[in-house]
Design a protein around this nucleic acid. Structure first.
Lengths: 245, 245
DNA sequence: CGCTCTGTTGACAAACATCAAGATAAGTGG
DNA sequence: CCACTTATCTTGATGTTTGTCAACAGAGCG
């Protein structure tokens, strides 16, 4: 099932709307705010997070190019979490009504969105498992596996290496660990030859080994069919890179 | 926005299909299996869980009457998790195509489903925060708050008391703690006058106090509008209880 | 009545957090 | 381009939370 000419036109339409550049470490939207746009990450990385009463922040999801920030804009009255950018992040800002129209018009796009939603839920469940049940080494290993898997699907992994804006502090906030402990775990992974991480270059020389260690099974990402079912992300990005920003 | 006569008819239709009784502790569906039905919990409690390589199981969500098990049946090719019943559980088994038809026909039902999906995601994110960032006392307190809040919306809380099929072992598998530690935490909560739990009767005498302790903020459940927007769960249950099972 | 599952308690061990300090690296303004 | 500042990374010593092991009491069930 591929995108037809009509779907291409609709996607073009989608991205011809407003675009917003979120500066590094800036918030795209905050908890409690109303949702005025469906947003699509076009470039850069972001995350969903929640602030705790004591000021700590917990990252609950990583957003990569092609990811939808608020597909539920018409449903939600107030954000139950915040979204921020790691590095500079470029987002398409789509009017919810417009978004809805497009969904109603194209069955293919509707399916692609269904896949997206279902992958989001799958990921969120796996994150729950990850932080609840896996010890630190496996937990961080699992996160690295997931990231590389997703980045690979976007063509952002070359020679087992990705360029990442994440700091160890970010990993800590995602994994529910302290930065100090994350650092020790990373050195352990390095020592085992499972990870090279210097500056922004993150390399997984032995993905199979890391996956085995951390119990990573990509089924929950529902990728094989996702990629087939429209490859929304790819399409969106291609188009975004062509158009003047 | 309430359900019109037409929507009622559609919902009737939905529940006139096959019904399945899952025995206590039985699986409704297992990880890896294809999804043949959209399932709706009509009576009893269940959970979503994942098994880890070492045999432990991690519960990632609790299912209550009115909850949808596989709204994404047409999208997913294989379950990325399993679903089981705590006590005996009654489910409506709806054919995905039929389900899809109904969604296309009724805007109200479509909206109700959008709310459901968005509440599911919100809950899953909050669970991630809960197990990742909160210490055991707050974590369990938070779970108890959420359960009571959801049960209350279903009219299943009387005198701050709910009848629950959960064991402390279940709580442990949901919270990512050991049963021993859960037991100690529960006694601590009892000692603070925040919880009475004897047999199946679970009472929260001071919900505000427990919420304050555990940082519980029900915003992520998106209930106020959910209840308005069709009250799908209530409708489904009412109908289910009337019809012969 | 005996069995199994659940709840309870205690002693001890392990994983992870905390605190504190120094070393690199990455920005920033002159 | 350099000096300065700040954020990130790294290391060690110590404390706390939670896990593990083991045993027993009670509840529910055939």
């Amino acid at each position: 099932m591929n995108l037809g000419a009509r779907d291409h036109a609709l996607l073009d339409d989608l991205l011809r709307t407003e675009v917003r550049l979120v500066p590094a470490r800036g918030d795209l939207i905050r908890e409690g705010e109303p949702v005025h746009f469906v947003k699509i990450v076009l470039d850069g990385w972001g995350c969903r997070y929640k602030l705790l009463p004591d000021g700590r922040r917990q990252i609950v999801a990583i957003l990569l190019p092609g990811d939808l920030c608020n597909p539920d804009a018409l449903t939600v009255e107030a954000m139950d979490h915040s979204i921020c950018a790691f590095g500079d992040m470029l987002c398409a800002m789509v009017h919810p009504e417009h978004f809805d129209e497009i969904c109603l018009e194209s069955r293919v796009i509707r399916r692609a969105l269904a896949f997206d939603s279902c992958a989001m839920l799958g990921m969120q469940r796996e994150w729950t498992v990850n932080v609840a049940a896996r010890p630190a080494l496996e937990r961080i290993g699992h996160m690295l596996c997931e990231m590389h898997y997703r980045l690979d699907a976007l063509g952002m992994v070359v020679d087992d290496t990705a360029v990442s804006p994440l700091t160890q502090i970010d990993i800590a906030e995602a994994a529910g660990l302290t930065p100090v402990h994350v650092n020790r775990v990373i050195q352990e992974l390095r020592g085992r030859g499972l990870l090279h991480w210097h500056g922004r270059r993150v390399t997984l020389p032995d993905r199979a080994g890391l996956a085995a260690l951390s119990g990573f099974n990509p089924g929950y990402l529902h990728m094989p069919r996702c990629a087939r079912a429209g490859d929304l992300a790819g399409q969106i990005i291609d188009r975004a890179l062509v158009r003047p920003s």
